[in-house]
């Protein structure tokens, strides 16, 4: 009864995520199918990775020469934002008991923003409210991508240009970051370091050098870039 009440309270908050995840999930499933990776692979990815950007980027590692180290480092950098989410929720997730590992595992961008911005209505358990937000978002992503994978079987293989979904997605996130002034410097550092590495090392070998360059510049420039330190000044 307690859980059903929490589910009912959580559901309305997740409706916007439902639309977004279904759309991006379907696009992901179609893209996986078009590269020859069927529903099982899509399901495994969405269930156990549950991170849109790195799953999309992983497609490029599934369609080029086998390089698990690059795939690992690349997704580590893409997923670095999760560290910030975790830090922000240290207190809120302190007393979550048995379900805590799942809450941490399911901490994607959307779930994070709902958990941060909402409180359960009176009489609803905090724990189960957070649990159902996490679970519903996770399921939307899994179901969307599986649906996309099945749609992918029905449409002609390799639709030319569909890969551009990935570029479009990152351009949009980049624009969103750029709108807020404080984020521009690290965003520019990311672009400039990568372009320079690309010019030097070429398209097949530039990822590791550009990650090293980015971390080096961010480390050396910390005094100027750290939001907390800027506030102190």
């Amino acid at each position: 009864m307690n859980k059903i009440r929490a589910l009912k309270a959580a559901f309305p908050y997740t409706i916007p995520v439902f639309t977004g995840f279904t759309f991006l999930g379907i696009a992901y499933g179609i893209l996986m199918s078009s590269k020859g990776y069927g529903v099982i692979w899509t399901l495994l990815m969405s269930l156990f990775v549950f991170a849109g950007s790195s799953q999309y980027v992983a497609i490029t590692f599934l369609t080029s020469a086998f390089n698990p180290l690059n795939a690992f480092l690349m997704s580590l950098v893409i997923n670095a934002r999760h560290i910030f989410y975790g830090i922000s929720l240290l207190d809120k997730y302190k007393d979550m008991g048995k379900i805590k590992p799942y809450l941490i595992f399911g901490l994607c961008d959307e779930t994070f923003s709902i958990i941060c911005s909402s409180e359960p209505p009176e009489g609803v358990s905090k724990k189960w409210f957070a649990f159902f937000i996490t679970l519903l978002d996770h399921m939307y992503w899994v179901l969307g991508s599986v649906l996309g994978s099945l749609i992918g079987y029905m449409i002609p293989s390799s639709i030319e240009g569909l890969d551009f979904v990935l570029t479009a997605l990152f351009v949009i996130i980049f624009v969103g970051h750029w709108k807020s002034k404080g984020n521009r410097k690290p965003a520019a550092i990311g672009v400039i370091s990568s372009v320079i590495s690309l010019l030097i090392f070429g398209p097949d070998n530039f990822i590791i050098p550009s990650m090293i360059a980015i971390i080096a510049v961010l480390t050396l420039g910390r005094k100027k870039l750290d939001p907390e330190r800027i506030v102190e000044i």
């Binding site: 670095a80 560290i83 910030f84 990152f170 690290p186 990311g190 550009s210 971390i215 939001p227």
Partner: peptide
Amino acid sequence: ITYLGKVLPYAAIGMLVVYC
């Protein structure tokens, strides 16, 4: 680590645009 968690995401997306 806190600092990297804050700034790395912005740089990572810049890198991903170039990667694409």
